[in-house]
Amino acid sequence: MVTRVQTLLNTFSFAQNKPYTPKDYRSKEEPRWCPGCGNYSILTQVQKVLADLSVPPYRLAFVSGIGCSSRFPYYINTYGFHGIHGRAIAIASGLKIARPDITVWVITGDGDGLSIGGNHFIHALRRNIDINILLFNNQIYALTKGQYSPTSEHGAITKSSPDGVIDYPFNPVALAIGANSTFVARTIDRDPRHLQNMLKRAAMHKGTSFIEIYQNCNVFNDGVFDRFSNKEIRDDYALFLEHGKPLIFGKNRNKAIRLNGYIPEIISLDDGKHSTSDAVIYNEQDTTLAFLIATLSNHPNMPRPFGVFLDITRTTYETELLEQIESAITKNGKGDVNELFNSGDTWIIQ
């Protein structure tokens, strides 16, 4: 049976193999985020990257949950679904399994994706459905006006923690690696070039791609990521991972990370005792290394890693499903419901 959806897709002509510009991805709706919000930059970079990759807007679906970031689909001229709190990833999973031909992006936040939607998050990662998850982390519940989130730092003063947060935050990258991800990256709203690169890498990856994007909420949590974006100081606080390259950072590129057994530590490259060759050479395909480096975020004195932590190949969920479907058809032929209903022990009453 050819489904109606296939027929519909065949009816419309797709001769528009034209180059796209970011404008093609702009919807008529004016973004309604606060002026200065980090979301604007992310929206712009996503539109740029989609144009660069020339993904036709009609082949795209953006799915989101609830929160400031989750308004994103309204501002992008593709198919879009603004779901309910925490469920974006589950909605996107269903859509992608039903329609592997659609490119699916999920927009979620630290509250939406890690708190109320935490379960869907970890299960999507292990399944490796080919969707791209962008988690806008602003370490606060912004839409509900300023309560602490599962990524708020211990001790943070918020509306619901006037005496300081007493739970400890998730490290989303480490959580994702632990959940058996195939692609994990971190970037930041205020570094458009890096952000674009990460988006492109995620788009190219087959399987679930997860990017944690540090996003400044200038209303409820302004400046929490300043040290990673302020050009004066960021080189001392941020460590940019590159596949096959040593882990070097610092304003004068004079510091590096080496492994002492399983313990990452900082070495100085100008103390005369160490050289670049002591530094860890990063390998995106090494899950153990990715996890060790991800845990740097847990130490206040360590630089915060950005970039692609992990990019490994594993068959996607929908590919395996399609393979099972194909092999069922090879083995048993295309199913005929009438035959199925009439199978088993039947009898005829005259």
């Binding site: 989101s64 679904f81 603004h82």
Partner: peptide, 15 residues
């Protein structure tokens, strides 16, 4: 309106 068809791009949700 089914995703994948040009011209019917639209956004829906719980609001």
């Amino acid at each position: 309106a089914i995703p994948g068809i040009p011209g019917f791009e639209h956004r829906i949700g719980g609001l």
